[in-house]
Design a binder for these strands. Structure first.
Lengths: 153, 153
DNA sequence: CCTGAAATGAGATCAAC
DNA sequence: GTTGATCTCATTTCAGG
């Protein structure tokens, strides 16, 4: 799949404001509203755009503690097992399998430190988890909406 | 700030579909469209909802390489310095200051391994950076839109 | 304070070109 | 790709709880 430069600009607009009107986007990229809609429909259809969501402030919703937890798992633990295991926790925001010493990295939010401790305990109690290593987030320096525009190296 | 249970359900709806109409949300939570709009306006005003964005598939946009990079910085490097430094790179998606050995964690996307290498090199060349430690993402197991509903520990 | 109902204007959507 | 008709939805105003 290839993205037209126009498509990229449309995606950039939608990353910046997911509720922007097609006419508004069209004004920025030089297209009419129906043309923009057709392109967005196509982008959604082929999976470039997977959906739309609100950006929320976790603190405002009562989540004051944020952490990255490295998971060290047993010899032959499949990604599927890890996925199923961490998906049980609503506190988990994202999870990845990674290279390096750890097998997976889990990004999670907790109401407070006590809550975080309990989540960490329960994740550590998962049968496939040998040990965990936590890094607490002090402050968020940057959070780009979606993913930035293509960059040339 | 306190969130009404109704507000939480509205936020959940918007996390699920950031372009949902007020009438549609109202049908799910049992309110009229204007009532939903008023609550959403207030949620945006007080910062609980910071905006709306599209969810995109980085691979579809040409980003095939994803990594977390730990930054080890010089003795008294301020978060502001780190923020300004990493913000220059469009490849950086998120950045946090953290507890532990490293000073910051940077989440970034690159077109390919060659591109990643060049970004890593340039970040490592920042004057305040002593060394970096990279973890490459193998596969994404989970990516929850925004942040999940409140959980009790 | 909150709600819902009605009116109005803006945007989404479809047809035709 | 566009323009133009139509219909939905967003938004405002108003009245009631």
């Amino acid at each position: 799949m290839r993205l037209d430069p126009l498509d990229e600009r449309i995606v950039a607009c939608l990353l910046d404001d997911g509720r922007a009107s097609f006419a508004e986007i069209g004004a920025k990229v030089g297209l009419s509203a129906p043309a923009v809609k057709r392109r967005v429909d196509k982008l959604r259809q082929n999976g470039a755009i997977t959906g739309f969501t609100a950006k929320v402030d976790p603190r405002a919703l009562g989540w004051t503690t944020e952490a990255y937890v490295e998971l060290y798992c047993q010899g032959k633990t499949s990604p599927t097992t890890i996925k199923a295991g961490v998906a049980k926790f609503p506190e988990v925001v994202t999870a990845y399998t990674v290279t390096g010493d750890a097998d997976a990295i889990v990004h999670l939010l907790a109401a407070d430190m006590k809550h975080f401790e309990s989540v960490l305990e329960r994740i550590g109690a998962e049968p496939y988890v040998i040990r965990t290593k936590s890094v607490l987030v002090l402050s968020q320096l940057l959070d780009r909406p979606g993913y930035a525009s293509p960059a040339e190296s």
